[in-house]
């Protein structure tokens, strides 16, 4: 037995592929771990920059929300069309809304619509994608066919039709309802993307190994497949959130949004309605646009960063 073991060891020493594969720096002590993380962040700045921008935006909204009364976002809470001043930081619009209060509450409302619609879309889409891709057969055919058909229809058309039918003059739309309307279509793309990933992963060696290890279908999906899809799911979620924000702003700018809530898109609607451009009320025009730009750019950077983190082929080597 001992001789057999010895020559095995000797043969193993011929393995040349060990030191060929470049790998991440050693993860030892807490300090070196920190340094490795910092080094990585310097190489891949999109993720930290994107997260910083997004947190800044949300912090502005959350901390501001503690200081500013929601009542100040209502019409006539301030003198109208005033430029920014000491007691009116962002000025006011033509109907006399305090624009600082509007920005504080509107930013969060808009982000919330995106989060709700994105979350519903990704959970529903991922479930359908997994069912279709993993089990296949006629379920797959039905899901695939439905998604294919729905993808050809312009989303805005659907949303406009639904929104106009849901909102009535006596009971205007709330931003939560609007988020759910948007979610009704947000699952299409995740379904298709995740189905494709599952189809590839289903034949992976470790899935087969789990199967012959006696794992059930649910175990294979939740313990073997989902962990490996996690970066992908997060990236899909971020994409879904930005798509949902875009859809909500679109609806609101057309005047189909929540009339009683000061979301960013709704602010843009009022500003168009009241000819803010012609009146030169720049303090009304700029803040919602800047907030939206920061939001979209941060979501984009986060997405690029996650992609780089999870896809070693894109990982730049220092």
């Amino acid at each position: 037995m001992s001789t057999a073991t010895d020559d095995r060891r000797e043969v193993t020493s011929f393995d040349a592929d060990d030191h060929q594969r470049p790998s991440e720096p050693e993860w030892g002590t807490l300090r070196s771990r920190w340094r490795a993380t910092l080094r990585y962040m310097r190489r891949n700045p999109s993720l930290p920059v994107g997260l910083a921008l997004l947190s800044a935006l949300i912090l502005f909204s959350v901390i501001g929300g503690l200081l500013v009364d929601i009542g100040d976002t209502r019409v006539m809470s301030a003198p109208h069309s005033r430029a920014p001043a000491d007691n009116l930081w962002f000025g006011s619009d033509r109907q006399g809304r305090d624009l600082f209060a509007v920005m504080v509450h509107g930013t969060w409302l808009t982000v919330r619509v995106g989060l709700i619609a994105g979350a519903v879309g990704i959970v529903f889409g991922a479930s359908l994608g997994f069912i279709a891709g993993y089990f296949g057969g006629w379920i797959d055919n039905i899901v695939n066919w439905t998604v294919d058909v729905l993808l050809t229809v312009p989303a805005m058309l659907f949303l406009v039709v639904i929104a106009t039918n849901v909102s009535t003059p006596t009971e205007p739309l709330s931003s939560t309802t609007m988020a759910i309307i948007i979610a009704a279509l947000a699952w299409r793309r995740p379904t298709r993307q995740i189905r494709a990933q599952v189809l590839v992963m289903r034949t992976a060696g470790y899935v087969q190994t789990a199967r012959i290890s006696g794992a059930s279908n649910l175990e294979i999906i939740f313990l073997e497949m989902i962990p490996n899809l996690l970066p992908y799911l997060v990236a899909s979620f971020v994409t879904a959130v930005s798509a949902a924000v875009l859809a909500s702003v679109g609806l609101e700018a057309m005047g189909l949004g929540p009339q009683n809530e000061p979301t960013l898109g709704q602010t843009i609607y009022w500003m168009i309605q009241s000819s803010a451009f012609m009146m030169g009320l720049w303090w009304w025009i700029l803040p919602p646009i800047i907030a939206l730009v920061i939001l979209f750019v941060s979501l984009y950077l986060i997405n690029v960063g996650i992609d780089e983190l999870s896809n070693p082929r894109l990982r730049r080597k220092a």
Partner: peptide, 27 residues
């Protein structure tokens, strides 16, 4: 079974212990 691709047979998300422990628990 012993599969063709030894790299693919282990889930990259886990340490190799996971692949060894799973059948022990299941059976």
């Amino acid at each position: 079974a012993i599969f063709q691709d030894p790299y693919g047979a282990f889930n990259p998300f886990y340490k190799v212990d996971h692949t060894l422990a799973l059948p022990l628990r299941r059976f």
